[in-house]
Design a protein around this nucleic acid. Structure first.
Length: 340
DNA sequence: AATCCGGGGAG
DNA sequence: CTCCCAGGATT
């Protein structure tokens, strides 16, 4: 596995080439691993470049305003990660003297750092012999050992296999090799078994069932919720926005006011006005439900005082700092700004 | 153990 | 459109 990695390791912005003699920067490893939770490498790259250009060290990140970090994270999803990212950076500065702790157990105590991230940082940044488990490695183990039981029940067995295979030396490179393998060869669909370095050892390939593994428990259908989203513009171009509550969906993110989201939502405009119905709808799918928000538009005057949110001056408003659902609403409101 | 958290790409 | 992918916190 390590020989294959030395020859085929992907060139990634947070990665130090194998055998280069350089040490990985724990801050960059940690940041990349948080971003890579439930998120693909291709999506993470641009965000990682922007974050590290703007905040090169954990000290710089820890000292930043919440709204700035949340805005930079916008579009990446799972916004609890961004909230915990800041909490973690501040904990590292305040409680660890600005140095990331080096053991799996210590890393596990940090906000937003779970079993995957703790093992990844410990092994990749600190050369500790930790067994990393992510979706890619689960898939590789399921095939290598032909584990036929469905996820998530088979997780403990897969973890045991991965632990046994983890070497004492270069465990970080070993983990990155398995993740690269899962991303490029041992893929979810149509795995390229013919060029796989584990071809001869793979039990699933011998049984001809590689593409069928890992088996998964059936997923439950997503319900549809509905509601209203309110986009208000003032004569001077300012736009009405609010910061959502810390907990819950899109927590801590900039957003347009909305009604509740349910089967039978009730209108809940942020201020009394002649709200116009342009007959447009924002559609978005979250992890566990579909959402349809009917667009409502209004012109505000300079003395309008909304019950929710604040008018943000046009010069300060960046659509890129909105989560995707709200960016869809903004784009929709822009498509018909010519007439009423 | 089950549920809550986005978003993007493939088909 | 409908899948499919991919960790951590909370309860």
């Amino acid at each position: 596995m390590l020989d294959w990695y030395d020859a085929h390791a992907r060139d990634l912005p947070w990665r130090v080439p194998p055998q280069s003699g350089e040490n990985a920067d724990p801050y960059r490893i940690w940041l990349s691993e948080i971003m890579l939770q439930q998120t693909t490498v291709v999506t993470v790259k641009a965000y990682f470049e922007r974050f590290t250009a703007r905040w090169p060290t954990v000290h710089a990140l820890a000292a930043e305003e919440d709204a700035e970090v949340m805005g930079e994270w916008a579009g990446l999803g799972y916004y609890a990660r961004a909230r915990n990212l800041l909490k973690c950076a501040r904990a590292v500065v305040a409680e660890h003297g600005g140095q990331f702790p080096q053991t799996e157990a210590q890393l596990l105590t940090l906000p937003g750092v779970g079993p995957y991230t703790a093992a990844a940082v410990a092994s990749i940044a600190f050369q500790q012999p930790a067994a990393v488990m992510d979706g890619n490695i689960e898939r590789v183990m399921a095939r290598l050992f032909a584990v036929d039981d469905p996820l998530p029940g088979s997780k403990p067995a897969l973890k045991e296999h991965a632990t046994r295979l983890t070497p004492m030396a270069r465990s970080g490179d070993h983990a990155q090799a398995l993740m690269d393998l899962g991303a490029t060869i041992c893929t979810p669909k149509s795995p390229a078994c013919g060029i796989c370095p584990l071809m001869r050892a793979c039990a699933a390939r011998k049984a001809g069932i590689a593409a069928e593994l890992p088996r998964k428990a059936p997923k439950k259908p997503k319900p549809t919720r509905q509601g209203y989203v309110y986009v208000a513009r003032r004569a001077d171009g300012a736009i009405l926005l609010e910061t959502r509550a810390e907990k819950g969906l899109l927590g801590g993110m900039l957003a347009f006011p909305t009604s509740d989201w349910s089967q039978t939502p009730t209108e809940a405009p942020p201020f009394a006005a002649d709200w116009h119905d342009p007959g447009l709808e924002v559609r978005h799918t979250f992890t566990h439900f579909h959402l349809r928000l009917a667009l409502r538009l209004a012109e505000a005057t300079l003395d309008t005082s909304p019950q929710r949110g604040e008018f943000m001056p046009r010069a300060l408003f960046k659509p890129s700092s909105l989560p995707t659902l709200m960016r869809k609403a903004y784009n929709l409101s822009e498509t018909r700004d010519d007439s009423g």
